[in-house]
Nucleic acid binder design. Sequence first.
DNA 1: TGACTGGTTTGATATATGTCAAAATTCATG
DNA 2: CATGAATTTTGACATATATCAAACCAGTCA
Lengths: 241, 241
Amino acid sequence: MQQSVSSFRRKAACSNCRLRELCLPVGLSAGEMQQVDDISHLKRGYARGDYLYRSNDKFQSLYAIRKGSFKTQVLHEDGREQVTGFQMTGEIIGLDAICTDHHTCDAVAMESSEVCELPFNKLETLSRELPSLQRHLHKIMSREIVRDQGIMLLLGSMRAEERLAAFLLNLSQRLAARGLSPTQFQLRMSRQEIGSYLGLKLETVSRAFSNFQDNGLINVRARAVELLDLPALHALVGKQQ
Amino acid sequence: MQQSVSSFRRKAACSNCRLRELCLPVGLSAGEMQQVDDISHLKRGYARGDYLYRSNDKFQSLYAIRKGSFKTQVLHEDGREQVTGFQMTGEIIGLDAICTDHHTCDAVAMESSEVCELPFNKLETLSRELPSLQRHLHKIMSREIVRDQGIMLLLGSMRAEERLAAFLLNLSQRLAARGLSPTQFQLRMSRQEIGSYLGLKLETVSRAFSNFQDNGLINVRARAVELLDLPALHALVGKQQ
DNA sequence: TGACTGGTTTGATATATGTCAAAATTCATG
DNA sequence: CATGAATTTTGACATATATCAAACCAGTCA
């Protein structure tokens, strides 16, 4: 019952997607915020394994994640596939597709999720009238670029344990930003998915977890993680091998 | 005479940066194009090794490369450093900085170069009036995101020779787009810089070059490269190891 | 021209991570 | 609670790439 059963989906004109609390907390007045809400649609009922969009789908909208989390993955012709990101509540997904009008990756729900659909044409029109919205949109795109470059650094010059430490700290930070515990959480993704994201094999990820555990940096049992020694993890990431 | 001598720089109000031929060939009327030209400034006299901007510099502008080429590199606190991209004539540089108002990487000239400076505030203002400019700006940013994700795939799941093949084919393609020979060119970067970009050591890059040469895929002598067997190079990139 | 300098190539060896396989654990289901 | 499937952990071994070191080469400057 991964994704077959609950594939129904409700799409409703939505007078309040509560975007303010989610993704656009920047410099918009209440009235302006309302205008953004007015062009957005709530979409619910995504179950684990459901696709938000697929590679090559026509690009229509960005999505603000209201609940749950997704992964994005690119598939190479030859079957090679790689997770390019994990997106959680409060984050924007779909930016890749603007340049070609078609999506360049799959977005898959990792748990029961809801999104706000933001039709991009309307967003562009609106952002011509609202400079602060325009600016915010630019910042979101730029942030994605910077994020990707951080991952390039990670993939290009860090060793396995440094990568995992960076990954865990990044998760921790994003949880903290949402007011959740930054040191104790449940992973939504498998070792295989983590490995794909970090450019490692799942066994290597598992070993790195075990090493951290043995050295008292974390507690880990399957997908339950507790970060015990944040300074040590930070040191790992910042340290030349 | 790497970068000490010719550090003077001329900055002129520029009535025709010829952006049309370079970076903005999309859907703008002559009059609209003129408006973009009016806000841009030509900056010349960058010699090999000169910085266009440095990490943490205040963000002011994007730059359209009119002549020459640059590399961008991020520096980790600990001295670890990685090349995140090579930009050539006709490409836009500086997108990383929008989200924080400060640059997140260094941009260094790889040869004698000129750029058009595009003050970002003015670009934003203008793009509120010109929908096709707005759209184009969005596409440029999105393209950068897609490009980065391609590199993530490369770094995360390709072997050394596949990476180098992908790199050479990418160069080839970009040269072709400018009407230059896609099979015979002069590299502007060292083995070390290529390695940094591809997540490899310079010796590994050198060996991969030699292997390609031995197998008749390319001719290479120092920085002069000739691609002999494009199909074989493509097959390398698309093939599962 | 010759000698310097930095970049490149090549070789020998070390090591981190991948691969393959089996055991252990967790999770879902009846 | 018991069963089975999927995931995770652990082990032994293989391999691609890194590391260290030396020779080679190309471009620059006297």
